[in-house]
């Protein structure tokens, strides 16, 4: 399962299309803001489902910022080792530095050109879901 944290429905649709085009068959859960993402991972209902294999996290989110979500993921023992890839429009240095400081696994800037974005998504799915050996989920 992949958790996509994305507030823009257009981008959500495009990201899911790109993942599907790249033959990613995993279930894709979507959280539309930071609060929803935290609720999904740590909330009362989180016991009823398994944890995602990969979290794709946008930084600019309503309610709770992406960086706060990342901090929360790393702060909780259960989710501390989950692979998190920041997928954002920003290439501001402070965002990149803050993300890595908080222990992000990868930082990808969404290119405006959608062909490039589709290619990036394809590689991302291939790498994190197939090639990369993830730590065991507690």
């Amino acid at each position: 399962m992949i958790l996509l944290v994305e507030d823009d429905p257009d981008h959500e649709a495009l990201a899911i299309r790109a993942l599907r085009k790249a033959n990613v068959a995993n279930v894709i859960e979507v959280a539309h803001d930071g609060a929803e993402a935290i609720e999904f991972l740590h909330g009362s209902g989180s016991g009823s489902h398994t944890l995602p294999q990969l979290i794709l996290l946008d930084l600019k989110l309503p309610k709770i910022e992406g960086l706060e979500v990342l901090r929360s993921i790393r702060a909780h023992n259960k989710t501390a080792l989950l692979p998190v890839v920041v997928l954002t429009s920003s290439d501001e240095e402070r965002d990149i530095v803050s993300s890595y400081r908080l222990g992000v696994n990868s930082y990808i800037r969404k290119p405006v050109n959608f062909s490039d974005f589709a290619e990036a998504t394809r590689q991302l799915g291939l790498y994190w879901l197939l090639l990369n050996q993830c730590p065991p989920i507690p």
Binding site: R17, S89, S90, K110, V112, F114
Partner: peptide, 21 residues
């Protein structure tokens, strides 16, 4: 500038994405 880098680019990607689709 920060929001320009985020918000101005987001709709562009949408336009490009759906054009590609």
């Amino acid at each position: 500038s920060y929001s320009v880098s985020h918000d101005l680019r987001a709709p562009l990607r949408t336009i490009d994405g759906f054009s590609l689709a």
